[in-house]
Design a protein around this nucleic acid. Structure first.
Length: 805
DNA sequence: CCCGTCGTTATTTTT
DNA sequence: TAACGACGGG
């Protein structure tokens, strides 16, 4: 044993001896690596945490430990995650160990950006009441700024602009050509950015890039923030992008001797968002950017069986350029993963349904199961099949509550109330329902408002800088008290470039019908603002019992009613049988926890804009459902039993992947497999309907990489797979090496004696089974009313239904 | 302004 | 195949 190790161990014993008994209990449950990571201090820390290795436990215990034992002020700890769900879980678990963690900043990257920009709106050149534009809004704004672009082109450029911001390329950056070679791109980006600035709003990319630019260009703010946060932790670091790295770097002051402690946690094998700007180099080169970095690996897996980890590890082992780690299964051995080859996607869905139904009959829950697929389009077959068989399911990520028309309409109203310069929201609702204000009048109003911005922008500029320093002083003072500065409410009437103001002014020149419409519209906004300011005053003057306090749902209900949107969508409900009115009510209900003030409104908008995963109410009730989900969406989740479907070349991995992208697909495969606790199934079809035609499919190369000998193979494997995998083991010729089980799912399904229903011939019984000359399985059905017919079940899965069981 | 029909086009997407 | 957008007629 060398001296270094001795020192380290005595250090650990030393620290443990000083720890309070309460914290000691939390440390006792950690394994040695987890413990080392938890109590590590002094240098930057990179925790390489494999799937299911208990990283959340480490981060949360670490936060608690820092507060309780190292006496770090809770509010000087910043922990960032990528999803709202992860942030909430982290906060809850940290608070459970140490209640003072409630005062720490545990947020998503984007919500941190929003928090930062609200404090520094002036320095960032945006409205303090900004709201966030989503991808659709980006496209609309690009179209308005460049009317000659088609929607498709605008879509393309919106994507590229978002990517440019992920890399933190501003409009004058020469590296923009790396993103998009089209020479017009820089111009389109610039005009979009100018137009966006006029609205006072930001897009998702700005929530990261602007805080970085503000820090870079304002020494005061930078030093204030470096002082404000003495500990910064980042979760899922492998999926951070360049802008996020730059933000972390400047916030931490690593190059300015700030003394801030930085700890990042991630797994390079789970980096799956390169297409959205995630930069795997961030984690691979972390130790170069943060000198003296200590690296700790968490390789003990507490989630999956050894068999599952074996094949997941086999797959990802084919990648080059990893930091490298091997997961050890703490739970030991379990069932061998099953690989089922099926004729087509109808049989695939059937196979899954039968597997699930059988397990439920034997005592499992529907919620034990997850169906994973590469693309959302694949969910449809499962939904149809499960609906028919009455298997309860939920589709994750597809509900898009906030993308529904009626919800977007209401939110547009709310956004315009918050920020009267919001052109996109204004255009969405000014003439909905019809107020006689057509496209031309809208353009005129927008131009009036924008010309006002142009006139005043020079005088504004002169006032801008003093405003920043005043704000910083306020910041410094409030920080001493451990409070965040209060938003001061801006007087909407005075806002430069207000579209509401412009509408009021333009109304005089309009036709009678349009004038009435415009006046009514302005009145709606005014009344909404009145409601907000009246509750604000009430709150200042009197002490009102919690229950009597007006909450933000009152504003939403008022807007829905006054705007005519409620009536408008109720009429739609009548005709189409939709539930729009109900959805609108649902939005109002979700606003109940928020104050009926401008601040409450901004909080609410932040919450819904930065967390689109909240589904409608359907998700709450009856949680015992099968989960249908894309592999991307499963990150951070786990299930007792997982079926990875569509394991075919061209689907997973997708066809058009270069070598580097193939590695990402492989990581995606690894992520999917390691979601499973107890049982893992893989399905692969030999035929698939795609784009209206049926194609022959080949097995996914990942299946061979996983190793056929590590799986129980069912069904008729494609010859490419059989040849390459014929190494004995569990898999024999024609998949018939399990005499105890019928290994061909088709034969198992269409056994002699089964009762079936055919679309054309009605009910019948399978009276004979045989093989054709080509070795295909054929059955003969005797129908009740249509005599006897022979079929190849392989081709009949959707029209020949097995009805018993 | 709304509705029907025709033609086009199909990744993954924490925020 | 199917779903969605664009366009034209009522």
């Amino acid at each position: 044993m060398n001296g270094d190790l001795m020192d380290e161990e005595t250090d650990i014993f030393d620290i443990m001896a000083k720890t309070s008994p309460a914290m000691q209990e939390n440390l006792d449950v950690l394994n040695p690596e987890q413990l080392e990571a938890t109590i590590h201090e002094g240098s930057p820390l990179l925790i390489l945490a494999g799937a299911g290795s208990g990283k959340t436990r480490v981060i949360t215990t670490k936060i608690a430990y820092l507060i309780a034992e190292q006496h770090i002020a809770p509010q000087s700890i910043l922990a960032v995650t990528f999803t709202k769900k992860a942030a909430t879980e982290m906060q809850e678990r940290a608070v459970q160990i140490e209640p003072r963690a409630a005062h720490s900043q545990i947020r998503t990257f984007h919500s941190f950006g929003a928090w930062f920009l609200r404090l520094n709106a002036d320095a960032a050149g945006i409205s303090p009441n900004f709201t966030v534009y989503d991808d659709d809004d980006m496209v609309t704004l690009i179209c308005k700024a460049n009317p000659k672009l088609t929607k498709q082109q605008a879509n393309h450029f919106a994507h590229k602009i978002a990517l440019a911001k992920d890399y933190c390329f501003t409009t004058d950056d020469p590296r923009l050509v790396q993103i998009e070679s089209e020479p017009e791109f820089r111009h389109i980006y610039s005009t979009y950015q100018a137009r966006l600035k006029d609205t006072g709003n930001v897009d998702f990319g700005d929530l990261i890039m602007l805080p970085y630019l503000v820090l870079r260009d304002n020494e005061h703010i930078r030093h204030y923030m470096q002082n404000r946060f003495k500990v910064i932790m980042v979760d899922e670091y492998q999926d951070s992008n360049v802008a996020q790295f730059l933000l972390l770097q400047s916030l931490s002051g690593v190059n300015e001797n700030s003394g801030t402690y930085v700890c990042v946690v991630g797994d390079d094998d789970q980096s799956i968002y390169k297409f959205r700007g995630a930069e795997i180099q961030n984690i691979l080169t972390f130790k170069d950017k943060f000198p003296g970095t200590k690296l700790i690996r968490l390789e003990r897996n507490y989630r999956s069986t050894a068999e599952i980890l074996q094949i997941a590890g086999n797959v990802v082992n084919h990648n080059e350029g990893r930091l490298g780690k091997t997961l050890r299964a703490e739970r030991g051995s379990g069932k061998k993963p099953v690989l089922a080859f099926l004729p087509n996607q109808d049989e695939e869905a059937d196979f899954c349904a039968n597997l699930i139904a059988l397990s439920v009959k034997n005592g499992a829950n529907y919620s034990d199961w997850a169906i994973l697929y590469r693309t959302n389009a694949q969910s449809l077959t499962f939904e149809t099949n499960f609906l028919h068989k009455k298997i309860p399911y939920q589709v994750v990520g597809a509900l898009k509550f906030y993308e529904r028309e009626e919800i977007k309409d209401l939110i547009a109203f709310l956004k315009l109330v918050a920020n009267p310069r919001d052109e996109i929201s204004f255009r969405r609702i000014i003439n909905k329902p019809t107020r006689g204000i057509g496209a031309k009048t809208q353009d005129k109003i927008v131009e009036t408002a924008r010309s006002e911005l142009l006139q005043t922008s020079e005088t504004e500029l002169a006032e801008n800088n003093p405003a920043v320093s005043v704000k910083i002083e306020n910041l410094a003072q409030t920080a001493l008290l451990g409070l965040e500065p209060e938003q001061k409410d801006s007087k909407q009437e005075d806002v430069k470039g207000s579209l509401v103001k412009a509408t009021r002014a333009e109304a005089q020149t309009m036709s009678k019908k349009a004038r009435e419409g415009a006046t009514a519209f302005v009145a709606i906004i005014d009344e909404a603002l009145d409601l907000l300011s009246s509750t604000e005053k009430e709150q200042e003057c009197t002490v009102i019992p919690e229950n009597d306090k007006k909450n933000l749902s009152a504003l939403i209900e008022l807007l829905a009613e006054n705007s005519g949107l409620k009536e408008y969508h109720a009429a739609q409900d009548e005709v189409t049988g939709t539930q729009r009115t109900l959805n609108m009510q649902e939005l109002a209900n979700s606003a109940v926890p928020f104050d009926c003030t401008m601040k409450g409104l901004l909080d609410f908008l932040d919450t819904i804009e930065l967390d689109r995963t909240i589904a409608g109410k359907e998700n709450q009730e009856d949680k015992n459902r099968v989960t249908l989900i894309t592999i991307h969406n499963t990150k951070g989740l786990e299930f007792n039993r997982v079926i990875m479907t569509g394991m075919e070349r061209g689907i997973f991995p997708r066809a058009d992947k270069d070598a580097e992208e193939l590695e990402e697909e492989r990581r995606l495969c690894y992520v999917g497999m390691t979601r499973a606790r107890n049982e893992l199934y893989l399905t692969s079809c030999s035929m698939r309907r795609m784009y209206g035609r049926t194609e022959y499919m080949d097995a996914s190369p990942f299946l061979l990489e996983a190793g056929a000998e590590n799986m129980k193979v069912l069904g008729h494997a494609p010859s490419s797979f059989r040849r390459a995998s014929f190494k004995g083991g569990d898999y024999g010729k024609n998949g018939l090496s399990h005499p105890d089980v019928e290994t061909d799912p088709i034969k198992a399904k269409y056994k002699k004696g089964k009762r079936v229903y055919h679309d054309d011939y009605g009910y019948g019984i399978i009276t004979r089974t045989a093989e054709t000359d080509d070795g295909e399985y054929s059955i003969t059905v005797t129908f009740e009313n249509s005599g006897s017919k022979s079929f190849l079940p392989k081709y009949q899965s959707s029209s020949l239904l097995v009805t018993d069981e």
